[in-house]
């Protein structure tokens, strides 16, 4: 039997029908993938944030108008929001039961989607308008 290199599921786990049947490992894997990306992005973002906070309107517009800072902010926001939405998902799964869980999971995705779009749109608008 050939081993699927893209799965972390062990052959024994498959035989016993234990563990995730479908996409559970994928969620776990994306949490780690985004964590790795967020280490350098966080450092770069905090560095940028400190310089942005001290500046006035023109200064902030000028700085975020450059491609590199704009890309750093957008990457941090998009990867960060994907990561935090996964984190909130497991918090909801841990603490909320029944029908309320479905609503909470939906609200989590809506919140993440709106914020991701708002931040990206704002940075692009600074750059292009």
């Amino acid at each position: 039997m050939t081993e699927d290199p893209n799965t972390l599921r062990t052959p024994l786990g498959r035989v016993r029908y234990l563990g995730s049947a479908r996409s559970g490992m994928r969620e776990d894997w994306f949490m780690r993938l985004t964590s790795v990306a967020l280490v350098p992005l966080t450092i770069a973002f905090v560095w940028l944030l400190l310089s942005l906070l001290a500046q006035d309107y023109r200064g902030v517009r000028a700085e975020l108008g450059h491609p590199l800072p704009a890309i750093v902010v957008m990457l941090f926001v998009l990867v960060g929001i994907y990561h935090m939405q996964l984190g909130m998902r497991s918090v909801i799964a841990d603490y909320i039961r029944g029908q309320a869980r479905e609503w909470a999971l939906m609200a989590n995705l809506f919140f993440a989607a709106v914020l991701a779009l708002a931040c990206t749109y704002a940075v692009l608008r600074i750059g292009f308008v």
Partner: peptide, 18 residues
């Protein structure tokens, strides 16, 4: 969870700047 909430502040700051 605190970071989850503070993205609201970041979005506010970026949208205001835009």
């Amino acid at each position: 969870m605190a970071l989850y909430a503070s993205v609201l502040l970041l979005a506010w700051f970026l949208m205001a700047a835009s």
